[in-house]
Design a protein around this nucleic acid. Structure first.
Length: 543
RNA sequence: AGGACCGUAGCCAAGUGGUUAAGGCAAUGGACUUUGACUCCAUCAUCGAAGGUUCGAAUCCUUCCGGCCCUGCCA
């Protein structure tokens, strides 16, 4: 499923013959890492074009030389490729500076643009406010010849930054502030990464963007809702410069994820203040962060396509993202048992020198993933929350004294006794096993209370589990500075165990067999496996 | 009365005058079980509010309420 209202527009434009082909574009300014919000724009643009056999261009919007950075450009290209998309071509806003300039000269010649000497502050004053109309600049009626000469001189570098701008003559009384003679060129005396020191003047977004679209034959220029009020200006530029094609701007709502903030500023603050490791910290909503957290490109893509988009800014719970990861991985990856909070279990009627190995399906629902060995001995670990001395209610499906439970892939065990530490915490459970109940043996004389997972203490591997939560603390006042709203518990590390078969070097995606959390992005430091949980526990058992 | 956009369930979102308002997520109940997972079955809205037009409205009109955006020589 893909955005209906935009797709409908495209279908109509194709049917009416307005366009023969659909061409879209993704136009990031190369000054930040891409996040999940950008993924929505990327997926939408690429998929929509793909729907109609069209093309999508990646265009770096580098009209402001003060802002661009090469490392962001590389990161953006990598992120788009990671998502599985190949731009038809990669262009730069600066590719069109010559045409931008010529068309601006044309605007002056038609009496539609003028060079203004007003300072920034004066211009603000003249612009008026939301309630009051603006007034015309005293320089508004310079002759075409003078404007031409002045604009040329601006280009040649005769004036300093801020001294002059080129403005377009529209309507100072417009209720749309964007139409009150917006500036389309300003002086910036900085070398540009692509055009060097060729230019002393650079076009502004509202002028450059529609022209870039036009010059690339973009048919549908998708952008976020905040540009709605820029559309009249977008159309004005197209109508009055008569470029080679007539693109159409279409706006859609932004995507937000609950528990995080998708703003460049916030993400930068987190990194700069070292609250997170870097832009690729698994807690970050950046694409590189989500990737490290374990998200696959398929899951991101499906997430975007399935949640759809409209002209509403949406705020989607993080667990929706989890859902699509789960959907993507559940048949694709092997599953492994893991114990995050270990509790020792001693099998009192099992030979303490014996270790058995069983074949166990890597993924119950997908036999193609094959089998691995799991082992069983008299000393095991189970999850702390999988044992309680007294069975709390009849829905309890785990181990309690006197009750019998299946160890997944192995035997039934019955808890007979347990030991406590000085704080009254259970530290060891004493069980007996029934050799007749081996999994797969066909034993069906009685049913266990439930099934729990375990690892064999004699063969398991130590692992550190990183569990992640929202970046934003929901209990903190929204008016506080972003940094102060950081959730200090957004990362919790637990020391536990994974079964022997877990291979950190080859299994970058694994489902850990308890309520669907998956591991990814291990870091093998010394002997310690670090596993980042990617999908949150659906619920806590200890309600 | 500054202007723009928007309001369909807890969260997304189809639907743009015509049978009982798609679908997904979440939730709840049940079945199954080598994970309280997965899978399967069932349940879950009269469309921000009030009026109006119409044989008939979530769809058109009016008013009200609510949200969000706009006063960069940023994008």
């Amino acid at each position: 499923m893909i955005s209906n209202f935009i797709k409908t527009i495209m279908e109509e434009d194709l049917a009416s013959g307005k366009h023969k082909e659909i061409i879209t574009r993704f136009p990031p300014e190369p000054n930040a890492f891409l996040h999940i919000g950008h993924a929505r724009a990327i997926v939408t643009n690429f998929e929509l074009a793909k729907c109609f056999g069209g093309k999508t261009i990646l265009r770096f919007d580098d009209t402001n030389p003060a802002k661009e950075e090469k490392r962001f450009m590389d990161a953006i290209i990598n992120d788009i490729k990671w998502l599985g998309y190949e731009p038809y071509k990669i262009t730069f806003g600066s590719d069109y500076f010559d045409t931008d300039y010529e068309l601006a000269v044309g605007l002056i010649k038609s009496g539609l643009a003028y060079v203004d000497d007003l300072t920034k502050e004066e211009m603000k004053e003249y612009r008026g406010t939301l309630e009051e109309k603006g007034k015309e600049s005293p320089y508004r009626n310079r002759s075409i010849e003078e404007n031409l000469k002045l604009f040329e001189e601006m280009k040649e570098g005769k004036y300093e930054e801020g001294e002059k701008t080129l403005r377009v003559k529209i309507d100072m009384a417009s209720s749309n502030l964007n139409m009150r003679d917006p500036a389309i060129y300003r002086i910036i005396k900085k070398p540009h990464p692509h055009t060097g020191d060729k230019w002393n003047i650079y076009p502004l977004y509202d002028y450059a963007h529609p022209l870039q679209d036009a010059m690339e034959y973009i048919t549908h220029s998708l952008c976020s809702l905040e540009y709605v009020e820029h559309r009249p200006l977008y159309d004005w530029v197209i109508e009055n410069t008569h470029p080679i094609s007539t693109p159409r701007q279409i706006e859609f709502g932004r995507l937000n994820i609950e528990g995080t903030i998708l703003s460049k500023r916030f993400l930068k603050e987190l990194v700069d203040s070292k609250l997170v490791d870097d832009y690729d910290d698994p807690r970050m909503p950046t694409l590189v962060g989500l990737k490290r957290r374990g998200f696959t490109k398929e899951s991101i893509r499906e997430f975007v396509l399935s949640t759809g988009l409209s002209r509403i800014n949406s705020e989607i719970p993080f667990n929706v993202l989890d859902h699509f990861l789960m959907e993507d991985l559940k048949l694709k990856v092997p599953r492994r048992m893991a114990v995050l909070n270990p509790l020792k279990v001693i099998i009192t009627n099992y030979d303490e020198n014996k270790i058995e190995h069983f074949d166990f399906l890597n993924n119950l629902e997908n036999e193609e993933l094959g089998y691995r060995k799991i082992s069983f001995s008299n000393t095991l670990y189970i999850e702390k929350e999988d044992f309680t001395p007294v069975k709390p209610n009849n829905k309890y499906k785990r181990l309690s004294l006197g009750a019998e439970v299946r160890l997944m892939g192995a035997y039934f065990i019955k808890a007979n006794d347990c030991k406590y530490d000085e704080n009254g915490e259970v530290i060891e459970v004493l069980c007996t096993y029934d050799p007749n109940t081996l999994s797969g043996s066909g034993f069906n004389e009685r049913k266990p209370q439930g099934t729990i997972q375990y690892v064999d203490a004699k063969t398991c591997k130590k692992a550190t589990f990183n569990l992640f939560d929202s970046l934003i603390d929901s209990n903190v006042d929204e008016d506080l500075p972003l940094k102060d709203r950081f959730n200090k518990n957004s990362k919790v590390s637990l020391e536990g165990f994974v079964e022997e078969a877990y291979d950190p070097t080859s299994e970058s995606k694994t489902q850990l067999m308890r309520n669907g959390y998956y591991s990814n992005d291990y870091d093998s430091k010394e002997d310690n496996i670090i596993i980042n949980r990617t999908v949150s526990l659906k619920q806590s058992f200890n309600k």
